[in-house]
């Protein structure tokens, strides 16, 4: 029994990989909902609309006859005004749920983020799905992703709808708009020789195809009585590596090797960042270097994905090294 898929955000970075994987495994009924079309496959029916407009998304769900909705849409991290995060991640997700329930959709898979349990201060060491949300969210992205996730999980069982959420950690891959451009920017600005911290902190990264793979597994495993229904799953490549190692490996793909390394202790990083933040307070510009970024590069942030392995049967299909090579190939 095959499903009719509707991929919300299917023109975006992750959504596109979900669409491609569905097509690759021979799915005949794949539709996409997004605000702008970028890919023009014959096999895919495209619906254009605004997620915060109930009629738009309801129209797509009805017309596509969707039985499995995969909701990957979200504004880019840090790239949009605060209101937009609430509109898309919370109001938009509400609309998706309401329409799924109204139309008797069987399955809803939601793309959450592992950062819903990150408070921006404390380290994450082998955290699993039992870790609670932080009392004070780090930022509007994390806060609205968590809210959206909660709504989706709470909707499980309503009018027969089965739901689950996938929480990937630090997605990267070909055509990604966040990690790779940032890493290349450091290279272009000749800042690769600077290192904050002692590079002993481990970070979990996730190659985008593995995340898409986890979404397909999640959809496949949602059926009546399934232990997957109503659950969240952290997804990583399961190979945490030192923060600066991954960056250096990216730079190495472009033949760039830092000639020498200047190490700043974490504390010095904090002082510089505080000054930068202070300066930006007076100038009114966004600081390029913040304490949050210092923590981001000095803290451990890695997870235990046993739950996804056990319940979804998830294993990464592309390893970290191969993933970085493929990602870098796409921008060469």
């Amino acid at each position: 029994m095959s499903d009719n898929y509707l991929v919300i955000g299917g023109e975006g970075f992750l959504g596109r990989w979900v669409v491609e994987m569905l097509l690759k495994r021979g799915e005949k009924n794949v539709s996409v909902f997004d605000i702008a079309q970028r890919y023009f496959d014959k096999e895919v029916t495209y619906y254009e609309g605004n997620l915060s407009n109930y009629n738009d998304i309801d129209d797509a769900i009805r017309k596509s006859n969707a039985t499995s909705v995969i909701h990957t849409a979200s504004p880019h991290y840090g790239g949009a005004p605060k209101e937009l995060f609430w509109k898309v991640n919370v109001d938009g997700t509400k609309n998706v749920i309401d329409s799924c329930v109204a139309n008797g959709v069987k399955k809803l898979v939601y793309t959450s983020s592992s950062s819903v349990i990150y408070d921006g201060i404390n380290e994450i060491i082998n955290a699993d799905e039992t870790t609670p949300y932080p009392e004070i969210p780090m930022d509007v992205y994390n806060e609205t992703k968590a809210k959206g996730e909660r709504l989706v999980i709470e909707a499980n069982g309503t009018n027969g709808l089965l739901t689950c959420a996938v929480r990937p950690s630090s997605i990267f891959g070909p055509n990604d708009k966040q990690f790779l451009p940032a890493a290349l920017n450091v290279m272009r600005q000749g800042q690769t020789k600077f290192q904050i911290g002692d590079n002993s902190n481990l970070i979990d990264w996730t190659y985008v195809e593995n995340v898409a793979h986890a979404h397909l597994l999640a959809s496949d495993k949602l059926f009546d009585g399934s232990p997957v229904a109503g659950e969240v799953f952290i997804i990583t490549n399961d190979t945490p590596v030192p923060f600066w190692d991954l960056l250096r490996f990216v730079w190495a793909q472009f033949g760039h090797y830092p000639p020498y390394i200047i190490k700043f202790p974490k504390s010095a990083g904090f002082i510089i960042a505080s000054l930068a933040e202070l300066a930006s307070y007076f100038t009114g510009k966004e600081p390029g270097f913040t304490r949050q970024r210092v923590r981001y590069s000095c803290n451990n942030r890695y997870f235990n994905i046993d739950k996804a392995k056990k319940l979804l049967g998830y294993e990464p299909i592309v390893d970290l090294e191969e993933g970085v090579k493929r990602a870098c190939q796409s921008v060469k």
Binding site: P242, L246, F249, A252, E321
Partner: peptide, 10 residues
């Protein structure tokens, strides 16, 4: 390089 990094990470 990367394989060493992964092995040590583990």
């Amino acid at each position: 390089f990367m394989k060493i990094s992964v092995a040590c990470g583990k």
